[in-house]
């Protein structure tokens, strides 16, 4: 699965184009941990693209590098055709208004000492460098209303007076008030209970229509990803395994890792599962040679050890980085029954 290569990049109305993205973390002892290794994908206008994978696969790091938080160590990120990896300070500030983010922990991502109206209006105040105008204040209230909070009663309160789900609504309002083109959601519902999770997922869908958003969604939860996405990117150990329409990828996964992720879901009948090679994800400091998934892959052979696979088309619009694709992936009698 060492999926490098740019075969999955498309033409058309592409809002975000990420090519050969690399993120390195230097460690104290002089080693370098490559968290994201030549990742390429794109997001079309109005699309929701999700990145899914287990912890340490680089999905959040990829999202942050796209937002230049911090800028990546290699590769290119284009927003509406303009390169954003080497912008000046003011250019970065202008770019950030067009790409807003919602974080995983709704309570920790809000300043506990500020009132909700100030939290939501802060981006507008920073943009103008002045106090909010009446029109901007009206926009704050309108956005609070749009996410389902009453501006009059909620606006003057502070985050600790709200539940996790309501704090996530505030975070979404804070992002939307800037009228962004792209909303990046990093595990926005992982910290929420299932009943509240449904409210927030529905809200994100509603806001996408109302504000004409393009969404990059990060999650480890396949069911959540299935619900919100048009397209999905599956990552493992810093590289892409598979990219394609979410229904196609989850219905007929091309990559063995995608199949194993699906079969690991607790809902799937334990008797109808594909075989997983036991063990944990290897250390990203010392990734396996060749395909990074080979140490856990039931189909790995000599070629996988020696040669890193490159992403290529598996069927139209559906791309995979695996030497063994071409033969349809059937690792066992498994199917994604729930």
């Amino acid at each position: 699965m060492a999926g490098s290569g740019t075969a999955a990049l498309r033409d058309g109305d592409v809002v975000l184009r990420i090519e050969d993205l690399v993120v390195d973390y230097p460690l104290d002892d002089g080693q370098v941990l490559r968290a994201v290794d030549h990742v390429s994908f794109d997001v079309r206008r109005g699309e929701t693209v999700s990145i899914v994978g287990e912890s340490g696969c680089g999905k959040s790091t990829t999202a942050r590098a796209i937002l230049q938080l911090p800028p990546p160590d290699g590769g290119s990120v284009q927003l509406d055709g303009g390169e954003i990896t080497a912008l000046s300070k003011s250019g970065t500030r202008a770019m950030r208004q067009r790409m807003q983010m919602v974080f995983q922990n709704p309570i920790a991502s809000l300043n506990p000492r500020r009132r909700v109206r100030d939290i939501v209006g802060e981006g507008l105040a920073i943009r103008s460098g002045k106090r909010l105008t009446d029109a901007e204040k009206a926009r704050v209230d309108e956005t609070l209303d749009a996410v389902g909070l009453d501006p009059e009663s909620a606006g003057e309160r502070r985050p600790h007076e709200f539940s996790g789900g309501q704090c996530q609504r505030i975070s979404i309002a804070r992002a939307l008030v800037m009228d962004p083109e792209v909303l990046v959601c990093d595990e926005p519902v992982s910290a929420l209970d299932v009943s509240v999770q449904a409210q927030i997922l529905n809200l994100i869908e509603d806001m996408k229509d109302r504000y004409a958003l393009t969404i990059l969604f990060i999650s480890h939860d396949l069911s959540v990803v299935k619900n919100v996405s048009d397209r999905v990117v599956v990552m493992y150990l810093g590289k892409i395994c598979e990219i394609g329409p979410v229904d196609a990828v989850f219905h007929s996964p091309a990559h063995p890792y995608t199949r194993i992720l699906i079969d690991s879901m607790p809902e799937v009948d334990p008797d109808s599962r594909a075989e997983l090679i036991p063990g944990d994800v290897p250390s990203p400091l010392n990734p396996p040679s060749g395909c990074r998934f080979r140490t856990r892959c039931p189909r790995a052979d000599e070629r996988c050890r020696e040669e890193a696979p490159v992403i290529r088309a598996f069927e139209p619009d559906h791309f995979v980085a695996c030497h063994h694709v071409g033969v349809p992936v059937s690792l066992g009698p498994a199917s994604a029954q729930v």
Binding site: S195, A198, N202, L222, K226, N227, V246, F250, A336
Partner: peptide, 21 residues
């Protein structure tokens, strides 16, 4: 059960959330 996103449902299926908390 209704509010759980279902892996076997098509994408963008509207979830039935439980209002309130």
């Amino acid at each position: 059960l209704d509010s759980m996103p279902r892996f076997d449902a098509p994408s963008h299926t509207r979830l039935r959330s439980i209002e309130g908390r």
